[in-house]
């Protein structure tokens, strides 16, 4: 089979937000092509989710352009766009007691506009997406019966069932236990590496995304502070500056022996150096 032509999503000097007088994001330059795995990191309220909304066309930029395959995103037909871009929003609720299987099946919608019913191919795609996200055993439970983490995994499974070329996830690990967080990022790294899925993950928590991603982007106050390969971008100093906490460097006990910066809690009995007389 011939490999599918690469997909490219880019933002050129994009500024945007909810109010033209005070844009949330300023001059965002970003390129995400097939096989890229970008982690967008930064503190709460720094404009990460707004950036995502600009990238998927929920918000129209005040200035600059978002292009999908060199065509302005706003000119894409919604159904065609949904065949290429899948989004996992931060919060998702559903008004009626749909089962997990039905929720994941909704991911087939953009591909099945012409026919009203499900077929065997849909079934196979949905089952494999549910296996990937470890929710197959919940298939017949309703969405409301499941825990927050299980719901989140079902929503990610839905995005996978959409068979996108670009996957954008907003805080996908929030609410997941450590095992599923690790499994999720391993899965995303695999999809990006072997299936050439273009992936953008938004996270306030840098530790797992930076291990999985190929490109890190630090966003603060709506501007890109730095971008580059994760090891170069996420230095101890930069993280301290970005999040305003004290870090210390730890050497991972792995064959690669990567150095990562870890936040350090101050013990209540310990006084901060500046508090000394």
């Amino acid at each position: 089979m011939r490999p599918a032509p690469p997909i490219i999503l880019e933002s050129l000097k994009v500024s945007g937000g909810y109010n033209a007088e005070s844009p949330v994001c300023h001059d965002i330059d970003l390129v995400c092509a097939s096989g890229d795995f970008i982690a967008v990191l930064g503190p709460n309220g720094g404009g990460k989710t707004t950036l995502l909304k600009l990238l998927i066309g929920h918000l129209t930029p005040f200035s600059g352009e978002v292009l999908l395959n060199r065509v302005r995103l706003q000119t894409w037909k919604k159904t065609e766009k949904a065949k290429i871009i899948a989004v996992v929003s931060q919060h998702s609720d559903i008004a009626f007691p749909f089962t997990i299987a039905e929720v994941v099946m909704l991911g087939r919608t953009p591909h099945r506009r012409r026919s009203l019913f499900d077929n065997a191919a849909d079934y196979d795609i949905v089952v494999s997406a549910m296996k990937e996200m470890d929710v197959l055993h919940l298939a017949n439970k309703t969405f409301h019966e499941c825990s927050g983490g299980e719901r989140k995994r079902a929503i990610i499974a839905r995005a996978l069932a959409q068979q996108p070329r670009i996957l954008l996830l907003d805080e996908p690990a929030a609410g997941l236990d450590l095992r599923h967080q690790v499994a999720l990022y391993e899965k995303l790294a695999t999809l990006s590496y072997t299936d050439r899925l273009a992936t953008i993950v938004i996270s306030h928590d840098p530790w797992l995304p930076t291990q999985a991603c190929s490109w890190a982007l630090l966003v603060k106050d709506g501007r890109i502070e730095a971008q580059g390969s994760p090891t170069r971008v996420l230095t101890k100093e930069r993280l301290e500056e970005l999040y305003g906490v004290t870090m210390f460097e730890a050497k991972a006990d792995t064959p690669s022996g990567a150095t990562i910066a870890v936040p350090l809690l101050r013990h209540p009995t310990e006084r901060h150096p500046t508090e000394r007389l």
Binding site: K78, A82, A95, F98, R113
Partner: peptide, 20 residues
Amino acid sequence: GRELNVVSLGDEGATNLGVD
């Protein structure tokens, strides 16, 4: 029918699945 199912996801969810 399909659109009605997707509408249950709310505005954002439905838009992400390409439903106008």
